[in-house]
Amino acid sequence: MKFEPYILLIGPISDPMVAIVSEKLTRRDCTLVVLDFQQSAHKWPIAISTGRRGRSGIFRFGARKIPLEAIRSTYVRRGGAIVQENDGEYLRRDQPHHQALFPNLLGWLPGLVMNPYRAACSNGSKPYQQLRITQLGFRMPKTLVTTVPQAAHQFYIECQEKVIFKSLSAERSVVKRLTEEDLPRLDQLQCCPVQFQEYIPGIDFRVHVVGSRVFASQIETSSTDYRYVEKNHFRNIRAVELSSELQEKCVALTKGLGLVLAGIDLRRTFDGDYVCFEVNTSPAFMFYESQTGQRIGAAVAELLFQGQCVESGCYHS
């Protein structure tokens, strides 16, 4: 029996990444299903069942029934945003029951999953991910995680007062330089660990890897965190071509982390070395596409349509 291929897009259609992928795929010979899990879990009735022998099954979403074999790929944009509520009161998003749903749902879906759940969670701990990144060949900045004010102060001195601090988890935070004015605040560390890193001067690169395709943007800015440009500061973003060796390294890093789509944050030091700060596992690539004209959304759509990476063999199987 021949099935028309289905592609699942998990996330709100108002999300620019879901929107562009959806737009590109509407021109292709496939059926798109957009699953927006902004409502609490029991209000979007889904059921996924697997057969006893072989992997046949049905994915039900409302009144729709989709044979599992017909699902070619899935793009997950808002994996962490499934909401559950209990008698009108919203549960914490990291509630164990809530956490249980998504890994099983994504794990049971066949075909290419962009990105697989466990791999997508790797940046829930930046130090965890950095250790993996180091294993995969990139240098990481000298990093201290501490609850001890004196240790942070000592690190500040050891790094010649060139230190940044940022969140340890995937919680979005603005990367800031540690300054003399911050030192009295270090006493607050005793309540919760904080991550400090040596400040590495250089030029920022955001590298998007889509399967085996690489899209690199170079960012020049006078701000510490190029995502948040302060008043009287500048930011220029342009498309660049990385060396083939570095491209291969970025593809290997993506694959090594179990990802299909990645947004890699690199900085080129003044001696030409590349330091990797982190890998975004659900990158907001449209910001870079709008600045550089790179057709990242089209590449994502193409990979979803193909259902597998031809060259890198990243088929989720």
């Binding site: 914490r92 990291d94 829930g124 701990s125 930046k126 130090p127 965890y128 950095q130 250790l131 993996r132 995680v145 969140s167 340890l168 988890s169 995937a170 919680e171 309540c191 919760c192 660990p193 904080v194």
Partner: peptide, 18 residues
């Protein structure tokens, strides 16, 4: 508290892995 819980998780996950 939610932020602290995530930071604590990130710390322990990394510390054990390392």
């Amino acid at each position: 508290l939610s932020y602290m819980a995530k930071e604590g998780y990130a710390t322990l996950l990394g510390l054990l892995h390392g």
